[in-house]
Simulated assay, not measured.
Amino acid sequence: MCGRFSLTTQKQQLEDGFGVALGEGILPPRFNIAPSQPILAVRQPEATRSETGNLPPYEAVLVRWGFIPAWVKAPEQWPLTFNIRSETAAEKRSFRNALHYHRVIIPASGFYEWQKRKNGAAQPYFIRPKHGGLIGFAGLMETWSNADGSQMDTAGILTTNAGAVLKPLHPRQPVVLMREDFAGWLDVRNNRPKDVQELLKPVMDDFFEIIPISDKINNARYLGADVQEPLAEQPQAAPDKGNSQLDLF
């Protein structure tokens, strides 16, 4: 599952890593991104870009982290859908259209997860690539239109069963796309959901490292970089009795 993440990399790294062009000042470092906030999504442009032009292959847009299907009439009555189960997305009316036509990649530097401690409190962890670099979460995007003509771009992060390294923290994890799979995932003109289904799997076990951090991350309004500082001592986890907190969609 993914309820918080960070995006703190330099603008040039993002542009090079995801094949986009970003405006000046669009991306200050963000260490504690929470659902309902604006996030960056990378998508295939609606118009085919010329092979001889200077435009990058993909475009970056700001969207609300919290997917709303286009057919919803009252978004305030729709639950905050920031995670989407990849295994059933093709079967659900809410996500079927987006999986066909509006697949996106959500850039991140790392994400956060919590594990119950012996004292009953939840110990937060920062999860990031072991060898550095950026993460590309598989996501779905939809544009919700109001009766007055206003629109809101929204997105959610696809999840899958957690791999061996992350499973002790939570049974679910975000779907992470390898860079060589970006083009196939984003190519909604030629690749149907069945063509990209094999990408919706746990990342290899040695991809992530898990860092115990302080409780500062629990406050969604706390934005300081020190939320990622490692704890001096390793916390003691409670005995594993199974974790039933799964995605709802």
Rank of each mutant, 00 (worst) to 15 (best):
Tyr101Ala: 10
Phe67Tyr: 04
Leu80Asp: 06
Ser94Ala: 05
Thr48Phe: 13
Arg4Met: 03
Asn54Phe: 15
Gln245Tyr: 14
Arg117Glu: 10
Gln236Phe: 08
Asp181Gln: 11
Gly149Val: 08
Gly23Lys: 10
Val203Lys: 09
Ile211Phe: 14
Ile211Lys: 01
Thr143Ile: 14
Ala122Lys: 09
Tyr112Met: 08
His131Ala: 14
His102Cys: 09
Asn243Pro: 01
Phe5Lys: 05
Leu40Asn: 10
Gln151His: 13
Val72Tyr: 05
Gly242Trp: 11
Gly149Asp: 07
Glu24Gly: 09
Glu91Val: 13
Thr52Met: 14
Val63Tyr: 07
Ala47His: 12
Val165Gln: 14
Ser86Leu: 00
Glu24His: 05
Pro79Asn: 10
Lys167His: 02
Arg117Asn: 13
Ser50Gln: 04
Cys2Ser: 04
Asn54Gly: 06
Leu140Gly: 02
Gly224Phe: 15
Arg128Val: 09
Gly110Arg: 03
Tyr125His: 08
Arg179Val: 04
Val165Pro: 07
Arg192Thr: 15
Asn54Tyr: 13
Arg30Lys: 12
Pro56Asp: 05
Asn119Asp: 11
Leu22Pro: 06
Ala74Val: 14
Gly19Tyr: 00
Val227Glu: 02
Pro202Cys: 02
Asn54Met: 15
Arg189Thr: 10
Leu55Thr: 03
Ser6Thr: 07
Leu134Met: 12
Gly139Ala: 08
Leu14Asp: 04
Gln44Trp: 14
Pro79Gln: 06
Val203Met: 11
Gly224Ile: 05
Trp65Asp: 02
Pro107Gln: 06
Trp114Tyr: 10
Ala74Trp: 15
Pro107Lys: 00
Gly163His: 01
Pro56Phe: 00
Leu186Lys: 02
Ala164Gly: 10
Ala162Leu: 05
Asp16Leu: 07
Met204His: 11
Leu7Asp: 05
Ser150Trp: 07
Leu134Ala: 08
Arg96Ile: 01
Arg179Lys: 14
Pro28Leu: 03
Pro28Cys: 07
Ala225Ile: 10
Leu186Cys: 00
Pro35Leu: 12
Lys130Gln: 15
Lys11Cys: 05
Lys194Leu: 15
Gln245Arg: 12
Ser94Asn: 02
Leu158Asn: 01
Ala155Ser: 10
Ala41Tyr: 03
Ile217Val: 09
Ala225Phe: 13
Ala162Met: 03
Phe67Asn: 08
Arg4Gly: 00
Ala89Arg: 04
Lys92Glu: 05
Ala183Gln: 07
Pro171Met: 01
Thr154Gln: 00
Ser150Thr: 08
Thr143Leu: 13
Asp181Tyr: 09
Ile157His: 01
Phe111Met: 07
Pro230Phe: 11
Gln173Tyr: 13
Arg179Gly: 15
Leu158Thr: 04
Leu223Ile: 12
Ile211Cys: 09
Phe95Gly: 01
Met152Phe: 15
Ile157Pro: 02
Gln13Ser: 15
Val188Asn: 13
Ala164Glu: 11
Leu7Arg: 02
Tyr112Ser: 06
Phe95His: 01
Leu186Gly: 01
Asp153Glu: 12
Ser150His: 07
Pro129Ser: 11
Glu198Ala: 15
Gln44Asn: 09
Ile211Leu: 06
Ala183Ser: 11
Ile39Cys: 08
Ser94Thr: 03
Glu24Leu: 10
Ala155Arg: 04
Ala220Gly: 13
Glu229Pro: 06
Ala21Cys: 13
Val196Lys: 11
Gly156Ile: 02
Asp153Tyr: 00
Lys241Met: 15
Ala238Leu: 00
Ala34Ser: 08
Val165Trp: 08
Ala232Val: 13
Leu248Phe: 14
Pro69Val: 06
Lys216Thr: 13
Gly224Gln: 09
Ile106Tyr: 03
